[in-house]
């Protein structure tokens, strides 16, 4: 019942926001409604956005309250009754959040807005032989234990990157074999996981700021590379690879206000300028949401 009321409330908020939006369009006004603004005729819908997409979210954040936060914070907020009218995150985080909380948060799967390939960045000259020419997450971690990194699985992209890397390890080391939680007990997998650095929320930032003292190998999205590595002092010092396991991350927006927000006319352009390709396809090349959730649990334990 509580949830139904919450949804009805959200619909009312969206309707109010639409009314405000219409009024603003009529006045050609450039006004943002922020928390703490004078209460007016309408309340603004609340949108949660993962930090990796902050730029895009801020670009569309003209008539709602924006919360830029890690997925766990959004999940905790919803669990504690905070109204979130839309969540801009990566597919399949809504499903993983549901698994974590033992209940589904959003009734529909949401809308896919854009995608970007998951890529491996390798500092020049630090992988040898076949691994240098055609790197994968098995040989790279073996060659550079502790210096090959995925973002922390608490981060939105980190959990997906961890799933991707682990699945690729299985592809390479155990070709044709299934990969599920039972494989977590394999000694060779445990060693690999121990050697994979998963502590840093943003290994690319470490690379950019610390140079060769940062990770030698890392996972991120092509969009991230195009935005942050290009033009930096580390540009040209790392090579970008799409490894044997093609994987991509898709941006999804879920929640009662999803459709309204996704209809923003400038949204596609915002994504493109942030390095993302507009798309309607979900994330690909990743293990199941349940397995990625379990992997994250394994790392944190």
């Amino acid at each position: 019942m509580k949830r139904v009321l919450a949804l009805l409330g959200a619909v009312a908020l969206v309707a109010g926001a639409l009314a405000l939006r219409s009024a603003l369009a009529d006045d050609s006004a450039d006004v943002a409604t922020e928390p703490g603004d004078e209460p007016g005729a309408v309340a603004a819908p609340v949108v949660a956005c993962v930090p990796e997409l902050e730029t895009v979210c801020r670009g569309m954040a003209r008539i709602f309250e924006l919360r830029v936060e890690e997925p766990a914070d959004t999940v905790a907020a919803i669990d504690s009754g905070t109204e979130i009218d839309a969540w801009v995150t990566f597919d399949p985080w809504p499903e993983m959040a549901g698994i974590e909380s033992n209940h589904a948060f959003f009734s529909d799967p949401g809308l896919i807005l854009a995608s970007s390939p998951l890529v491996m960045l390798v500092r020049n000259g630090l992988l040898d032989g076949a691994c240098a020419d055609d790197p994968n997450w098995a040989c790279a971690v073996e060659a550079r234990p502790g210096r090959a990194a995925v973002p922390s699985p608490d981060s939105a992209v980190g959990r997906l990157a961890l799933g991707w890397a682990a699945a690729e390890w299985n592809d390479v080391v155990r070709p044709g074999e299934p990969f599920a939680t039972a494989e977590f007990e394999l000694p060779e997998f445990r060693n690999w996981l121990d050697d994979l650095a998963t502590d840093e929320p943003d290994p690319l930032d470490e690379v950019l700021v610390l140079g060769p003292a940062g990770p030698f190998v890392l996972a991120t999205t092509h969009a991230d590379v195009s935005q942050r590595l290009a033009g930096s002092r580390e540009d040209g010092r790392l090579a970008e690879f799409q490894t044997s396991r093609d994987a991509s991350v898709a941006v999804v927006i879920v929640g009662p206000a999803a459709e309204f927000l996704a209809s923003e006319p400038t949204l596609a352009a915002n994504f493109e300028s942030a390095g993302w390709t507009p798309s309607t396809e979900g994330s690909s090349g990743l293990p199941s949401p349940g397995l990625m959730f379990a992997l994250a649990q394994e790392v944190s334990s």
Binding site: L208, V209, G211, R228, G231, S232, R233, E234
Partner: peptide, 8 residues
């Protein structure tokens, strides 16, 4: 520099 856009 902490800003990676500025060369060392």
């Amino acid at each position: 520099p902490a800003n990676p856009d500025v060369a060392v």
